[in-house]
């Protein structure tokens, strides 16, 4: 399977991929987009334009092409190189500050691919990058493995609601035990943050669309406090998010206003004194950058 790697000068992530290929004795052809003669990249781009993502600063590098499929950005490339054609599904698009990789959704991937995920994270961290993880509380065993192997640097945990409302909000149930374990694990990282995004959802019991109530957000805060035994954890109640993390949240008809958010903050601060609020728009994962 011929591998072609497209890189840019000064691209640290490109160096990490190149090193991975060398470490695993995988042969590849490299084209640097900055070369005077970049015909190779231009031809590739012309024929695969629809498969290549562009960000606000241009095309993301590195890009790897195996003759059949385009892989772009560090983690998806390493995931493919590590696991072959079996998709890990842990990685979502994410913009991160220099020196960080993110978009690693421990709740979304295939839990049978954890060993491959660990190999990827180990290589990334060995290369000097810091790793940001994202979880909604499900599949705590993935987060636990990462914690045990010390392969994560920061955790963003989105607590979608009290355990009993997870199915209604995300489309899949989550046990109280799993949610509590994830909270405990997230708080064990040196750098972490809990967040609840207020999105409209259909309540199973009433069939009406609504948001989490202030009492339910307070219940989340109380759960964090109870599980961890502390009341200082960073907890953000957020509105304005219109993208999907898990499930389809695009049914939003409106967002919670700033004025409404104050009541949520007051309610949550009864249990977590550092609770803050934020109004956001756009995709949550991308905004983590």
């Amino acid at each position: 399977m011929p591998l072609t790697l497209y890189t840019a000068t000064g691209c640290a992530k490109c160096n990490v991929v190149r090193r991975f290929l060398d470490d695993h004795d995988l042969s590849f052809t490299e084209y640097n987009v900055r070369d005077a003669d970049n015909t190779g990249f231009r031809e590739f781009y012309a024929s695969h334009r629809l498969s290549i993502l562009r960000g606000k600063d241009g095309i993301y590098f590195p890009i790897l092409f195996n003759g059949r499929k385009v892989y772009q950005d560090l983690l998806p490339i390493l995931g493919f190189l590590q696991s072959g054609d079996r998709p890990l599904r842990f990685f979502l698009p994410s913009e991160q500050p220099k020196g960080w990789v993110g978009g690693i959704h421990t709740s979304a991937g295939d839990p049978t691919g954890v060993a491959d995920l660990m190999a990827v994270l180990a290589h990334v961290r060995k290369s000097g990058f810091k790793v940001e993880l994202f979880t909604d509380g499900s599949q705590p065993e993935v987060l636990q493995t990462i914690a045990e192997k010390k392969l994560g640097d920061r955790v963003i945990m989105e607590i979608c609601g009290p355990p009993g409302l997870y199915r209604a909000i995300t489309g899949k149930p989550l046990s109280a035990a799993d949610l509590s374990l994830s909270i405990e694990l997230a708080a064990s990282f040196g750098d972490y943050r809990f967040r609840t995004v207020l999105l409209p959802f259909v309540r199973g019991d009433r069939g009406a669309t609504g948001f989490l109530t202030t009492a339910e957000v307070a219940e989340i805060a109380e759960l964090i406090k109870t599980v961890t035994g502390g009341n200082h954890h960073p907890f953000v109640v957020s509105s304005g998010y219109t993208g999907a993390v898990t499930g389809d949240h695009n049914q939003s008809t409106r967002t919670i206003s700033l004025q409404e958010l104050f009541a949520y903050r007051t309610a949550a601060r009864r249990y977590l004194v550092k609770t803050e609020i934020e109004q956001r728009s756009g995709n949550l994962l991308q905004e983590e950058a």
Binding site: L258, Q259, F262, A263, R265, T266
Partner: peptide
């Protein structure tokens, strides 16, 4: 500047 109701809830900032 915050607005606080009689019960101590912040309702504007």
């Amino acid at each position: 500047i915050i607005e606080v109701d009689w019960e101590g809830n912040i309702i504007w900032e």
